[in-house]
Simulated assay, not measured.
Amino acid sequence: MNAILDRRLTPARADLAARHLEGLVEARAFVDPVPMRVAAPSAPVRREPRPDAPLDTEALCGEAVDVYERFEGWAWVQLRSDGYVGYVPDDALRADALVPTHRVSALRSFVYPGPSMKLPPLAALSLGAGVTVTGETGEFATLSEFGRYATGFVFAGHVAPLATPEADFVAVAELFLNVPYLWGGKTSLGLDCSGLTQLALAAAGIVSPRDSDMLERDIGQPVPFDDALRGLQRGDLVFWKGHVGILTDPDTLLHATASSMTVTREPLRTARDRIQARSFGAITGIRRPR
């Protein structure tokens, strides 16, 4: 395999690869993708087809994937949103799932079997999950289907049309304050630094890559900075080698950090000094998404 190809973004193994990579990589067979969608509230994307394999990221309900192999309960896929490649549980996917019309805009919201909060919920969806809304029943949005259920109901105030992005991605990120840190996570049950950043940007209609090194390379424009960290603004992304945080104002950093195992807000200079002394070293870059 060509060494310059990124494992995280390249659907290629020694035995199998995507057909569009034929001539670029070596593999015993090349296949066309089968389009499917995530039909579970979320699905782990693991590095290997084992439940104890490292969690690289998560795919949310409604997310489109290209499937290259299905075997013994696992599907080898590439996410269409950010190109990430990995293994997801096969039962989390459906080929006939409808295209989402709305996204969950609350931190977390329950799906009910009827338009009543008193009913036992079917599931809980995290911010960014996609659902197909066909109408409203009282205060509830009616879903045409939900997973294996013919229909479902979610509080209408907790969903927003996909065509209506959030105005302030930082405000979205702030919803996750105190959520536990989880390596590879992308839900309100747990997430990591780049998962938090990607989710918040996506809610504002900004498509971005998954990991911090990709974000630092590709997102927005670089912002000049010095040791005094002057000239920064709300929404700037601060990068270290292997870490990223979001400025909520010129002097305050919001980030999912293993130092507290939560999403936390702290003075930027305090975070900079601690990170430089204990973990990722000096700040490597600051970028402004828009």
Results as ranks from 00 to 15, higher is better:
Arg108Asn: 13
Lys186Tyr: 09
Asp66Tyr: 05
Gly185Tyr: 13
Arg103Glu: 08
Pro222Cys: 09
Leu125Ser: 06
Leu189Val: 11
Leu229Arg: 05
Ser188His: 08
Ala97Pro: 03
Asn2Ala: 11
Val207Ala: 15
Gly114Ile: 15
Ser126Asp: 07
Leu268Gly: 04
Ala39Pro: 00
Arg37Val: 04
Arg37Trp: 01
Ser109Asp: 12
Thr10Pro: 07
Leu268Asp: 02
Phe169Pro: 07
Ala64Phe: 07
Glu139Arg: 02
Val154Trp: 07
Lys118Gln: 10
Leu98Gln: 03
Ile246Pro: 08
Trp183Arg: 12
Gly73His: 14
Val45Ala: 13
Ala106Cys: 13
Thr264Val: 12
Lys118Pro: 04
Thr248Cys: 00
Arg28Gly: 11
Gly231Gln: 00
Asp82Pro: 06
Tyr112Ile: 06
Arg230Asp: 14
Ala171Phe: 07
Leu229Glu: 03
Pro161Thr: 00
Leu175Gln: 10
Val179Ala: 02
Pro35Glu: 14
Gly205Phe: 05
Leu232Trp: 13
Lys241Pro: 03
Thr264Pro: 07
Leu125His: 02
Arg28Pro: 06
Val133Pro: 05
Ala277Asn: 08
Pro49Cys: 11
Pro121Phe: 12
Leu254Gly: 04
Gln221Asn: 09
Asp213Ser: 14
Cys193Gln: 05
Pro41His: 01
Gly245Thr: 06
Arg287Cys: 09
Arg103Lys: 14
Glu145Tyr: 08
Gly205Val: 10
Ala95Asp: 13
